[in-house]
Amino acid sequence: MERLRYFLQRTLLSMRQTPLLSGATIGTVAIALMLLSFFTLIVFNVQNLTRQWSRDIQVIVYLDRIPSNSVLEQWCQEITKLPAVETVHYVSQAEAFERFRKRLGQNDDLLDGLMPEILPASLEIALREEARTQRGAEELVELLSRNSTFSDFRYGQEWLERYDAFMFLLRLTGTLAGGFLIFATLFIISNTIKLTIYARRDELEILSLIGATPFFIKAPFLAEGAFQGAIGALLALGGCHVLYYFFLKKGLAALLTTAAAQNISFLPTWMQVAVLGLGLTLGLAGSMLPLRKFVRM
């Protein structure tokens, strides 16, 4: 208990005694994590947006003949069982006609005198998220083609090609930039903490001379690193929230449609906790590396 109190006292006191160094460490962690969080926020929102677009990806099978209810039910059951399929919806000729009429809007009088039978019935097959790619759609079409009744398929090939290319670019940019940012953050934080520990190497030497165990020497420094990392992470989240509010929420709202702007959201709670955990871990790891060098018995 005495030791725990000593560790806590030392951690807080040492931060008070070296406000400039502590401030520099916290500031470095905050700025580095804010950049990382803001980048994650952008990727997260772009992914959300594309996920919404991808919901439109579906394979439509136009039916030459209207099947009986029992056959239709059997097809739906069989298709739903396929791993790439999320839902199957049968669009009757009447429903297709009604949709067409709605789409024409004020010009719907063009359809006056026409019967619903001019449009084919269809099966609208929505894909699972992981299959919403050109390859996924093509594979499904190949499977469906085995049923000789199905011959006319539509799945927006060109749109899917562009969507795939965009998603590839997004992932590549996300991985490269995210990896670089994490590496840079660890490097900067580790070096800043190394400086603070270097400035206090006399204290480390004296502690080791008077019989402090390696744990006793390292614990306050590790606690300080973790504490500074956590404070930095909280500041980073605060800063990221400010950036989000002014640049994404307000700034983009002016550029995007209202619906798209409404979908822009801040990092979910688990990601915020992850940023806090990352700050804490970076602070710990950043202290641990130089301590290994300076604390030698």
Binding site: S208, L209, G211, A212, P214, M297
Partner: peptide, 20 residues
């Protein structure tokens, strides 16, 4: 390392530069 720490608890050190 831990035994070194325990040994040093039985030894007193005084240096030219005081090490305070």
């Amino acid at each position: 390392p831990r035994s070194v720490a325990l040994l040093r608890r039985e030894i007193g050190f005084v240096f030219q530069d005081f090490k305070l």
